[in-house]
Design a protein around this nucleic acid. Structure first.
Lengths: 347, 347
DNA sequence: AATTAGCACTCTCGATATGAGAGTGCTAAT
DNA sequence: ATTAGCACTCTCATATCGAGAGTGCTAATT
């Protein structure tokens, strides 16, 4: 890691700050004028030359101002940045909103996406809480009307999956209940991988449900469901998106599932819940992300359900704001998740 | 309505077709060459001049080729266009996919959004089926773990709403069941507006659930839930989105709820299920939609659940393809909806 | 040794000019 | 009614140019 003098750090910090605000290369004179430095522009020039040498700044073209490189931004985020916490009053408002939405996970997601987007002024992405290793606990089948049946699948983590089924033929509630009971005791505590082969003597109803449970457990262990999002109009208003294929490339992150899954898997796999990961540019690994940055976090609890959330913006985004917003919302959602499963019954 | 000669119609049609493909003004000579017309370019020029007079064509600037006006496109869609039906083999593949997804409404939505987007080559939007006047039929409360309770709300339409609740305190299953029974008989057949005032003597649990049912019925009668979508990368690849604020304005349709609600209300309120509505440009009413077109339909069944779906593209979109795709998918989903509620029990 | 004033130098960007080309509208002939 | 012919118009791509911003370097200063 490079060693920078205090003054170099100061200048790098100011360049980043100014560039983030103005979206334009920043010159030495501009810097001393704007921030009242007590050195001359020539001194700043020399320092800038050195920072360019080190790879933290670059010139878009000879004799233009300086712009931070991805490397420079990484250094900034790692060592120089200070978070821009949300005002306390705003935090109160937000947690109040979450409190009102406490009954519906869907509402959490919408609200979280909205808060993330508006506070970070970038596009937000968030996946619902899911348990990584779905472990069967209990099954119920509820007749609603005709062949339409509601399957309620309860996991050991406390997560509940509800699903409407349309069966091949109609069955009375008693038959449904007994089948559910039978399958429940057969599958208790099992993960998808541990499920036994279906017994020969199983009825058609039981066999159908058995298969559906299998599919559902599998689905829960892979992928991450619907992706909620908001604030794309924020980022598309930024000048770097106003022409070329930048807008299209950004949306690709949302619409190309494999990309997003790969991304989350690689970036977040070593990360604890609670940490915020900042991905600046493609980092060499994702060409599609050039010129974009992502600020990501995982929320939930280790042994139960967890999900991902984050914001996407131009490389020139306000990292201080983004990191603190993501961190705050992740914390809030973690509370919501654990709140929703306190006082577990001992069964 | 203007009266056009057959030849004028032919020329208008060709101009539209060529413009849609090439995204460029089309000239008289180009037209006769490309489509082997047996008249000279001078004749075509005269006809074009007339069509410009009538308001169906316009010149981006003096002595450029012609481009259809919104008026011209409307005439084209109304009188000249022929649908471009999907190949039968493709239809088979698609309905097979829907068949496999028949158990989960969420899957319908994703699949429909994906099919709409890829076949129309535009951005797709779709809302889940919802009953316009939610009428209470039946309520169940299922204890899952601790204070976490699943509320299952069955409507007379056959629609089932499942919702996770986190109660203020824990209750045993018997208490939940009896409360559900009590509320079920009290509210049977009622809409949100018809619900009685809550009796004084109601327990805290009953009161809480009562309020939630009210909120839920209200939510179901207004708005349209999550909007699924796909294919934005399709449209953003079109040249008209490559610069300026076009991309941002398009995304606004997705992110600004009030706009979309207003739009659907106004465009679709007089429309029967089954009809496809084409909205070209803002039609004067929606400034935000200038340069965009929407092809919309409603699916489901009148007296039960229904939803909206459609595609959004540049004004220069392939209407033949879009209309037939939207119509086809709407029909498919209508089948899915009615299928999922056949053989209603007589209760 | 670090800082700074001064200055020549470089490169972009916007304005201006120019010419080729596409496509038209009109007139006169068919 | 159609068409050939042609002058005319306007855009777009390209080239040229000068202003201005900002640099890097050198020599003077602290």
């Amino acid at each position: 890691m490079h060693k920078l003098t205090e003054r170099q750090k100061l200048i790098l910090g100011l360049v980043v700050q100014d560039y983030v605000e103005a979206a334009q290369p920043v010159g030495s004179k501009h810097l001393v004028d704007r921030y009242g430095l007590d050195v001359s522009s020539a001194t700043v020039r020399n320092e800038m030359a050195e920072l360019t040498e080190t790879g933290f700044l670059r010139q878009p073209f000879t004799s233009a101002g300086r712009v931070p490189t991805e490397e420079g931004l990484r250094f900034f985020v790692g060592e120089l940045m200070h978070r821009q916490e949300l005002p306390v009053s705003l935090k109160h408002t937000i947690s109040h909103q979450f409190y009102q939405a406490r009954h519906e996970v869907q509402q959490w997601m919408r609200l979280a996406a909205s808060v993330l987007a508006s506070q970070s002024r970038a596009a937000s992405l968030i996946t619902p809480p899911q348990s990584q290793q779905a472990r069967f606990k209990h099954l119920e089948l509820i007749l609603t009307t005709g062949k339409q049946v509601l399957m309620v699948l309860v996991l050991e983590s406390g997560q509940v999956i509800q699903q409407m089924l349309v069966l091949k033929e109609a069955f009375p509630q008693e038959k449904l209940s007994s089948t559910a009971e039978q399958l429940s005791s057969m599958l208790r505590g099992k993960t998808q991988a541990e499920m036994p082969a279906p017994p020969e003597a199983m009825g058609t109803l039981a066999a159908e449900i058995f298969r559906l449970v299998q599919v559902e457990l599998d689905r829960l262990s892979t992928g991450f469901g619907e992706v909620y999002h908001d604030g794309w109009t924020n980022v598309l208003a930024e000048p770097e998106f106003s022409e070329g294929d930048a807008a299209q490339r950004a949306l690709r992150v949302l619409e190309e599932r494999p990309l997003l899954e790969d991304l989350l898997a690689q970036v977040m796999n070593e990360s604890e819940i609670g940490g915020v990961q900042v991905l600046i540019g493609g980092e060499g690994r994702w060409e599609q992300l050039n010129d974009f940055s992502l600020v990501l976090a995982r929320y939930g609890s280790q042994n139960a359900a967890s999900g991902y959330l984050g914001v996407l913006g131009p490389i020139r985004m306000s990292y201080g704001r983004a990191v603190s917003t993501v961190d705050y919302v992740a914390g809030l959602l973690s509370e919501m998740v654990s709140e929703s499963m306190t006082e577990k019954s001992s069964d």
